[in-house]
């Protein structure tokens, strides 16, 4: 029990890293896969992304990084991952 505004949202705003708005999911993965404590996990992710630890919770900086590296974004990126046009033309030609 516990409603989402009182529990999940309150903790996310008071203490959370912001999930996919920032780098919360990436830091969580390092705890889960390597058993890293929070400071070590943050330092590891920041190093891999070549940014400062303080940038990990910044949604503006992290949105750009996530889009550049194609590691998941909050909003769809229409057309970004469409098949190359040459693939489609080749397929059409062979069908004909």
């Amino acid at each position: 029990m516990g409603d989402p505004l009182g529990m999940a949202i309150s903790h996310a705003i008071a203490s959370g890293m912001g999930g996919m708005r920032a780098a919360g999911d990436l830091v969580a993965r390092m705890q889960m896969t390597r058993g890293m404590k929070i400071d070590q996990a943050k330092a590891y992710v920041a190093d891999k992304l070549s940014i400062a630890v303080s940038d990990l919770t910044d949604p503006v900086i992290m949105t750009e990084i996530r889009q550049d590296l194609e590691i998941g974004s909050m909003y769809p990126l229409p057309g970004r991952f469409a098949l190359p046009r040459s693939w489609v033309l080749t397929s059409t030609a062979s069908d004909g």
């Binding site: 989402p4 999940a8 008071a14 203490s15 959370g16 919360g24 969580a28 929070i38 630890v53 303080s54």
Partner: peptide
Amino acid sequence: FVSVEPGNEIVLSYDGGALKIVR
């Protein structure tokens, strides 16, 4: 409403997270 200082943020895990919306 208060919050941690910048730099002290932590990651969140949930128990029964999805169910709280369904409930």
